[in-house]
Every structure is written in structure tokens, then in C-alpha cells.
Amino acid sequence: MENLNNTKAASHDLDALLSPEADKVTFKVPVIVDADGNPESGFIIVGRNSPEYREADKAVRIVNQKAAANRTKAIDLKTDAGAAKVVGIVDDQDVARAAAVVVDWFGWDKDGAPRPFDKSAMPKILTVKPTWLAKINAALMEDNNFLPVSPTSSEPSPSSN
């Protein structure tokens, strides 16, 4: 096991990470790329610490609790129908959380004109394109995608100008 006391670790500004601005950091998730791998179209998302994600997650859990309280009998997971019902519930939850974190998009047009962002379209888009849902969910799982950019030691500080 590595001795952490003898290694030089990166330092992070905890105050910056805990600031309200930190939860507004966005990340571009490309879903269509050109032949060289450059992003052409995709979605701009906020992370799991954002109010958008936390509210969607809470809403999903509330629906689960209400459904459980109103259920007269358990879902029979030994049957295809019961298992399919649970899979459908989980899929709907994934779509709800992912749609909630999309705050903008890029590279989409309609008849050659840039298409304005329509948050209400996101659940349908992510249901129709499950691979795009998977890309958003993968990006959400990487906390480094949502860390505020801090100045590096090679950049001049404001007081050195």
C-alpha cells in the first residue's frame, strides 16, 4: 500500500468545490462526432451534485415510495412480466435523471437553422436513443467532469500583473 504521507498530492481548493458555482459546472457530451473524432452534436450537462440532478433523484425516490405504499401485492420477479415491469421502471428512472441534467445542447439544427434548446424534448430523445442516454450517464459518473477549473501554477496570479 502506498504511503500517502510521502507522496506529493495535488491540492484542491475545498472552498471552491463547496461553492454554489461549483454545482453549475457543465460538461459537453458529444453523441455525434466527425471522422476525426471532433464533437459535432451533443448535450451540455450538469453533474450529480447539481440541484437539477438532486431534484430529479428525489422525485424518482418519491414516486418509488408512493408506488410501494399503493401496491397491493409485490411484483413477481419470477415472471417475465414482473421482471419486465421492474426493468421498465428502472429505465424510466434513468431517463428522468439524465433528462434533468441536460441544460443545453449543441450542433442540432432544423432546416439548416440552429435548433433552440427544448428541455421538454429530452425524455423522448433519450428514450429513442438509449446509446445517448448511456453516454450522458457515463459522463455523470465521472466527478472530474464537473470540477471547477482552477488556475495552474504556470498561470500568472492576478497580483503578479
Results as ranks from 00 to 15, higher is better:
F117K: 04
D23W: 09
P30K: 05
A69K: 11
A74R: 12
N3M: 00
R115K: 12
S41P: 04
E52G: 03
V63M: 04
D23I: 09
G112Y: 06
V101C: 01
P123E: 05
A59I: 09
A59Q: 12
H12P: 08
R97V: 02
K78R: 09
T7C: 00
W132S: 07
N161E: 10
S159F: 09
D36T: 12
P30L: 08
V102Q: 00
A81M: 06
F106C: 01
A67D: 14
I136K: 06
E155Q: 15
A98I: 00
V149R: 13
D80Q: 10
F27A: 01
A35S: 09
V60R: 04
Q65L: 04
R97C: 06
T7H: 02
D57C: 08
T26Y: 05
A22L: 10
V86P: 04
K28Q: 06
A59E: 12
T127G: 11
E2Q: 04
V33H: 03
N49D: 04
K8S: 14
L18H: 07
G107E: 13
D92A: 15
G42C: 03
I44P: 01
P156E: 13
A83T: 01
N49F: 02
G37Y: 11
N64M: 04
Y53N: 04
S154A: 15
D57S: 12
D80L: 07
S41N: 02
N161L: 13
R71Y: 04
P148I: 14
V87D: 11
G107A: 10
K124W: 11
P148A: 10
N5W: 08
L17A: 11
L133R: 00
G107D: 09
K24G: 11
